[in-house]
Write a protein that binds this DNA or RNA. Structure first.
Length: 233
DNA sequence: AACCAGGACGTGA
DNA sequence: TCACGTCATGGT
């Protein structure tokens, strides 16, 4: 725990002024007109915080959260498009998919054996919810759902105020000496939540902005060279 | 040609 | 608890 942590809001404003609203979580049905390789500047549905709306859009975010684990969104998105072609972004349909067909559809996102299992597990869980918003604890009990995936689902699929921490978040804040590099997930998450207003759009944008920022300055070692955030802390 | 990608799980100490 | 190997494919 550092004292510099009050800088969390300053950093948010700085990132927002640099990159603007990110429009996360991307949906296949709302592909932006300006997608980029870095994941995208104003690429999806910027400043629209009402998505996802429909049941299958919520489900699509959940599938994407599993598919993008330790994989670029570019590849996860390809897998989602393949599933869409199979008309399988619908829980009942996906459960009926033959495992080999499912695997071939998501192969591009890697870890096809685990992820095919995880997708069906989370789908069964999703159906059992019957429209109810799951608790964080419930989500974590689903095989294949860890801290980050649970928070991603809650924040971006269900619009719950759960801050999402990922490897980039730690990489950036540790490099800036704002936190120790062995800080635990829940500690870093709580650090953000206790220093930000409990506001879903802010949580959504902040995580997305950190990812965009990391792709520009923390993609490869040495990390953080010429990071403009160093000028404001 | 290594290294990384919007992690999670199982294992043994 | 915690460090470490494993899971798999694609892009740079």
């Amino acid at each position: 725990m550092s004292k510099h942590v009050k800088q969390i809001m300053n950093i948010y404003h700085k990132l927002y002024s640099l990159y603007g609203p990110q429009g996360w979580w991307p949906l296949i049905s709302h592909e932006g007109r300006n997608p980029t390789k870095t994941g995208a500047v104003r690429g999806y549905h910027p400043q629209n915080y009402d998505l996802p709306q429909m049941r299958n859009q919520i489900y699509e975010v959940i599938l994407g959260a599993i598919l993008t684990q330790n994989t670029s969104w570019l590849q996860a998105n390809k897998a989602l498009i393949n599933l869409h072609q199979l008309n399988a972004i619908e829980p009942e349909k996906l459960l009926k998919l033959d495992d080999e067909i499912l695997k071939s559809a998501i192969r591009c996102a890697g870890f096809l054996n685990q992820k095919s299992t995880y997708l069906k597990e989370i789908t069964t869980f999703f159906l059992e919810l019957n429209g109810r918003i799951p608790s964080r604890k419930e989500l974590l009990q689903v095989k294949g759902v860890g801290n980050e995936t649970a928070d991603s689902i809650l924040l971006y699929a269900y619009k719950q105020p759960e801050f999402v921490v990922d490897a980039y978040t730690l990489r950036i804040f540790a490099h800036l000496n704002l936190v120790d590099d062995n800080i635990k997930y829940m500690e870093l998450k709580e650090l953000f939540q206790s220093n930000l207003p409990t506001d879903v759009p802010i949580y959504q944008e902040y995580h997305a902005l950190l990812v965009e920022h990391a792709k520009r300055y923390y993609k490869r070692k040495p990390y953080g060279v010429d990071d403009p955030l160093k000028l404001i802390i």
